[in-house]
């Protein structure tokens, strides 16, 4: 039986009717057509489905949509736009921190949460902080470089909006 629920997605109030077993990622991708959030492994290993729930990174394949009732969700679509990239998106582009790009939305959402908690991480802290995200192409080197550079950019521009999702 469908359950009515209200939540915020990327700053917009949204009303959904979901089955109890609907996963958050499926509600985002199917009901709301926010297909930037990817399903990789569907077993909570790979982190491609990472979104922010009330500002915290969560694997949306391992959360029921109904559990998100009353929360504020940010997906990769809500982080920046093609004309105004989030500093993390800009850093990923500048450092070529991707190859096929499939893991990138989740990787960026995790990286943004990481810097929100630890604005000036060491390389080791970046690697540890991204343990929940798997990339099968890059070997992580450029991803780590992008996150470290983004931290520098965001720290050196305190007046700039520090989007945290």
């Amino acid at each position: 039986m469908a359950i009515p629920m209200d939540l915020q997605v990327n700053g917009q109030a949204v009303h959904l009717e979901v089955e109890p077993e609907t996963l958050l990622v499926d509600a985002l991708r199917n009901a709301l057509q926010l297909t930037g959030t990817h399903v990789g492994c569907d077993t909570s290993q790979c982190g491609a489905c990472t979104v922010h729930v009330d500002g915290k990174s969560v694997k949306s394949c391992t959360m029921l949509a109904v559990q998100a009732a009353g929360t504020a969700i940010t997906t990769i679509e809500g982080l920046g736009s093609p004309g105004a990239l989030h500093p993390m998106q800009a850093a990923f582009r500048q450092h070529h921190a991707l190859q096929c790009g499939f893991c990138t939305p989740g990787m960026i959402m995790s990286a943004v949460d990481l810097l929100a908690r630890n604005p000036n991480p060491s390389e080791a802290e970046v690697r540890a902080g991204l343990e929940g995200n798997i990339c099968r192409c890059t070997g992580y080197h450029n991803i780590v470089a992008a996150v470290l550079d983004c931290a520098k950019v965001m720290n050196s521009a305190p007046s700039r909006e520090k989007a945290h999702g």
């Binding site: 909570s44 982190g47 990472t50 729930v53 915290k56 990174s57 969560v58 694997k59 391992t62 959360m63 995790s110 949460d113 990481l114 902080g129 991204l130 343990e131 929940g132 995200n133």
Partner: peptide, 8 residues
């Protein structure tokens, strides 16, 4: 686990 698991 990892950061996402620790958040839930």
């Amino acid at each position: 686990g990892d950061a996402q698991v620790r958040n839930r």
